[in-house]
Design a protein around this nucleic acid. Structure first.
Ligand code: MN
Ligand code: MN
Ligand code: ZN
Ligand code: ZN
Lengths: 152, 152
DNA sequence: ATTGAAAATGAAAGTCGTTTTCAATTGGCG
DNA sequence: CGCCAATTGAAAACGACTTTCATTTTCAAT
């Protein structure tokens, strides 16, 4: 890790090491604030912007990539050898991963047809996970309109 | 159109009619500001928030849905009978649509396997469209890192 | 036509995650 | 060591989205 940083011309600092460690110890799909909280448990002096900057750096190094599910909060997902898709539960906001190997062929071909050169894939299925469906059985119609109540 | 509004309990106003008309006359994937500009060509007195609110209303009526590609700008896409995917060009920021019929089966099955109940699909392929690739042939390496220049 | 309650409007302000600024500190090579 | 560029942290800036509120308008019921 230090090696990778050095060879790319970045310095190793205590904050950076801590942030990197925390990031990789936390699960996938971490938000800046989640990581910030985790880091501050171990060193409350670390600043928010430092966490943010190092998260960006982690992405720059190719160790993670941003995931944007449309709720305005960027999540950082450890890079996986092959692209994967996400099930996003509208209720608990959790992301489940699934293999997209079976659909990549068709997508690449569709791109080819219109001479589009793909370099990134975002396959996200929204809905409700089994946990949440069980929990809210009686009124899953209500939970279904998560953010549609304007003038209720 | 007026009928639909009335039956749902919404009022018809000159601004609303203008905004609806402009929205449907513009192409797909419209941003609030794009629609705002278009509307103001015809009536400069219409406010930004009115455009925004009516765009939300159009979604509420099921005539459009929000598309969030991760650049922080919400686009509004006219509802299509069946879900479609998007090619998003990192260079010109345009969205090309493509049919996802051939991959829906696999996705639905993948969801089934983990007891996830899907109700929304977002299939977005990022990359470079044929126009942009031709235009920037000599230095497509540079354009390739659209937003990766932090300390260039 | 008149009227009044509810909805809609527009300007301005508020929200909130992201990003930048800047002075002070620090890492690491020579 | 000693220097210089990289890094840090606090605070401010940014920007799209959303809400607030006083005023205006719609429209159903007189
Ligand atoms: Mn993931
Ligand atoms: Mn579309
Ligand atoms: Zn859930
Ligand atoms: Zn393009």
């Amino acid at each position: 890790m230090k090696e990778l940083l050095r060879t790319k011309g970045f310095k190793t600092t205590p904050q950076r090491e801590l942030i990197f460690d925390c990031f990789f110890s936390l699960g996938k799909h971490v938000t800046v604030d989640e990581l910030y909280q985790k880091v501050r448990e171990l060193d409350p002096s670390v600043g928010h912007s430092t966490v943010w900057r190092n998260l960006k750096l982690i992405c720059q190094l190719g160790l993670a990539e941003e995931v944007n599910i449309g709720d305005g909060i960027t999540r950082y997902d450890r890079t996986t050898p092959k692209p994967h898709g996400h099930f996003f539960c509208r209720s608990c906001k959790k992301l489940l991963e699934f293999d997209v190997g079976s659909v990549m062929g068709a997508l690449v071909e569709a791109a080819h047809e219109v001479k589009f050169e793909p370099d990134g894939y975002k396959i996200e299925i929204q809905g409700y996970c089994s946990d949440c469906r069980q929990a809210s059985r009686p009124n899953d119609a209500a939970t279904g309109s998560a953010n549609d109540e304007r003038k209720a």
